[in-house]
């Protein structure tokens, strides 16, 4: 697959330069934010910091780390992200498998009704108060499941996965049924392995969302049992400055803490993406399964 013609070679060179440029455009602000998070309050506030920390210190990170609930919050976040990934992925994939078969001979009666059911669920919502009442009334208050179940069905992802399933070659499936496989076997042994790129994508989105979602943590959980995102949000929440807290606010350095928060928020994707990378490389999946 080496470029052969001059035109293609020059395209490759141009393309690479463009990509490096784009990467820089995205990286540079992050470096700025990193520098902010490591700089002193005064230099941050007076806008002296560019890409190199001024008055190097780790106060912003310490401020977060020294909080007694930091470690439990980190643990809860990790547990929530993993559990939620497992539940959501399974629930949405199962539904996507069914709906990908449509309403015809291979599918189910009432297909259109179910599609409508999910579309309405995607577009409408009852609002915060009734959802809160429901979650507390069914006894999920302050339980990790309150952070997982209400958002487990994600119609956006469901439709995405379903369309990927639809694109899979029909012949493979029919052959499997001929050999006596049932739906569960076809789903687990054929559809899932063949859809690794989309599963990786959706999985990545889910991890990022769950890791950074803070609102559910703030209303469904008690103050000392919140996920990391909620905890960080409370650490950076700006107080009304007045005579009684001005000197603490001067030490607080919100912008640095916010910057640290951004980096903590991006952490999972920085850790996971390199692992998932191979699923985004063309050809690998179909090739592997064909084998």
């Amino acid at each position: 697959m080496q470029p052969t013609t001059t035109a293609e070679r020059s395209f490759q060179i141009f393309n690479q330069i463009l990509m490096v440029f784009l990467a820089l455009v995205c990286l540079v602000p992050l470096l700025h934010v990193l520098a902010l998070s490591l700089s002193s309050s005064a230099s941050v506030m007076s806008n002296q910091v560019t890409f190199w920390p001024i008055g190097l210190n780790f106060n912003s990170y310490e401020k977060a780390l020294e909080n007694p609930t930091f470690l439990p919050a980190l643990g809860l976040s990790a547990k929530r992200t993993i559990l939620s990934l497992a539940v959501s992925l399974l629930v949405n994939c199962l539904a996507a498998y069914v709906l990908s078969k449509g309403g015809g001979r291979d599918g189910i009666a009432g297909y259109k009704g179910f599609v409508g059911f999910f579309i309405v669920a995607m577009l409408f919502n009852g609002g915060m108060i009734p959802t809160y009442l429901l979650v507390t009334k069914i006894g999920l208050y302050n339980s990790i499941w309150a952070l997982i179940l209400p958002s487990a069905v994600n119609v956006f992802y469901l439709i995405l996965i379903m369309n990927f399933f639809k694109a899979l070659p029909k012949e493979l499936e029919e052959a499997a049924f001929m050999d006596g496989a049932n739906h569960w076997q076809v789903f687990a042994r054929m559809f899932l392995p063949l859809s690794l790129p989309v599963l990786a994508t959706v999985g990545l989105f889910m991890v990022v969302n769950d890791w950074n979602e803070w609102f559910m943590g703030s209303i469904y959980m008690k103050g000392d049992n919140v996920p990391l995102s909620t905890l960080l949000k409370s650490i950076i929440s700006v107080p009304i400055v007045d005579a009684s807290n001005a000197s603490e606010v001067a030490k607080l350095n919100n912008r640095s803490i916010r910057a640290a928060q951004v980096l903590i928020g991006a952490l999972p994707i920085l850790l996971i993406y390199p692992v998932l990378q191979r699923f985004f490389t063309q050809g690998i999946v179909i090739g592997a399964v064909k084998e």
Binding site: L94, T131, L134
Partner: peptide, 13 residues
């Protein structure tokens, strides 16, 4: 296979 999604969406949405 469809029921978990339907039940969850029914309850929470």
């Amino acid at each position: 296979m469809l029921s978990p999604a339907v039940v969850l969406a029914f309850i929470f949405v």
